[in-house]
Every structure is written in C-alpha cells, then in structure tokens.
Design a protein around this nucleic acid. Structure first.
Length: 220
DNA sequence: GGTAGGATGGGCT
DNA sequence: GCCCATCCTACCC
C-alpha cells in the first residue's frame, strides 16, 4: 500500500485568526476535531487544555510579560512553544484578542498523515496511539521544535485546518493534568472515548478514534 | 495490565 | 536553588 496516502489526504480550510480571537476555554474546546498539520505530518486534535492567563496561577503568563511569555500576550493564532523538564517541547496556540493573555496546550493527536515519518521521529512508540499521546510526544512526532516559538499558525508550514469531513463530537471536560494550583478548574477538553487521549479517560470505547472518510493510515 | 524513579535544563523566586 | 502543563525504562503483578 502507498504508505498512509498523506499526499492524497485533503483537509479543510486553514483556521483563520478570528477562530483564536475568543476566550481561551472556548478556543480549547473548538480545537477538538481540528487537524494540526506540519509539512507531510498531520493529526486530529483529541485533547487540549486551556490556560486563560488571567486569574489562573497555573498559566505561564500569570506573572506578566517576560521574554518567554511575550507571545502569549500578542496576536492570537501564534504558537507558544516551551521546554519542559529540560527535554520536551510543548505546543500551545495563543488565544484571546491581542493584549490579553491566554493559550491552549495541545496534549494529544490522532495521527492521520505522514505516519511513517512520525514513527521515524518516535522510534520508542509501539502502538499507533502511542505516537502522539502526550504533549511532549506529539511535538516529537510532528517535528515541532523551539524555533516554532511565535510561528503564525494561520499560514505557513505549521497550521491548523478544518477536518476533511466535519462531524459532531462528544466532548468531555475534566481538570487539567499535573496542575496543583487551580487544580480543580474544568479546563481540559477531550474527545469522549478516544483512545488517542493521554492520561485520565472516563471511558474508552472499543471503536476508539475519530472515524475518517479516508484511510487513516497503515493498519497495525 | 500497572507504577516508581531517574533524566534534564530554562525560567523565575 | 527549586520548580515544573513529561517520557521512558525497569520491574512488578
């Protein structure tokens, strides 16, 4: 078979800046089911977390503008990439109107294109669902690095697109992962039953995954 | 199937 | 100096 047929896959339009110019939690919820694309690699966003910035001490932007957090206060629709635990990059997308802080952490993807490339980047991953399950894993799989800090995700090689075939999604809301302060706030959004979601899941359906109109990849 | 523990570096108090 | 929005390996059930 011809790999995952990534060259053949067609996604919808690139999300415009107005998509991101809204309250952070709203953007986090709306990003579920959209497709993160970087070159030949692409994955459906199945898990996000909102970091509203204002009134949320868990947000990096809680203590104001620094060299690192500057982009979070800037124009929406840009990438905020940061290093965590000295080893892993985390990808966030800036929300809220310019001047207001807020970003959405992308925590997990369901790979749909460029899967062979993702496997090369993630040799430790066994099953398909392990390739991009977790914020550090997905940046590795997608080839997202520190230089993507500030990248405009409404144009260029790193973008978010509408799915090929939009469908209604069952969304579940939970507290964020690994947060001690503001720990109880319901700001994590996941696709219910999706087996590509990291961490706590209420239920995992046997079908798993979002159904696609095209072949999602090499069966395993 | 599950989890404990080590690796590792930049940002901020 | 201490804190992380983590991942992987080893090891145990």
């Amino acid at each position: 078979m011809s790999e995952d047929g990534s060259a053949m896959l067609r996604f919808g339009c690139v999300l415009k800046r107005t998509f991101y110019e809204r309250p952070t939690a709203e953007v986090a919820r709306a990003l579920l089911g959209k497709v993160l694309v970087h070159g030949p690699a692409a994955g459906i966003i199945v898990e996000t977390e909102a970091y509203p910035g204002r009134d949320d001490l868990a947000s990096h932007s809680a203590r104001g503008i620094t060299a690192r957090t500057r982009v979070i206060f800037g124009e929406p629709g840009h990438a905020y990439v940061y290093l965590i635990y000295g080893m892993y990059q985390c990808l966030n997308l800036v929300a809220e109107p310019a001047g207001m802080p807020g970003c959405v952490l992308i925590r997990a993807l369901q790979p749909v294109a460029g899967i062979e490339l993702m496997r090369e980047r993630r040799p430790a991953a066994g099953k398909l669902e392990d390739i991009a399950r977790g914020p550090g894993r997905l940046t590795m799989a997608m080839g997202i690095i520190r230089t993507h800090y500030g990248a405009d995700v409404t144009r260029g090689s790193l973008v978010v697109r509408e799915p090929a075939e939009p469908r209604s999604l069952e969304i579940e809301v939970t507290p964020r992962v690994g947060i001690r302060i503001c720990a109880e706030r319901p700001l994590r959004f996941i696709l219910r039953g999706n087996r590509f979601v990291s961490g706590p899941r209420a239920h995992v359906s046997s079908s798993g995954g979002v159904q696609l109109s095209c072949n999602p990849g090499t069966p395993r």
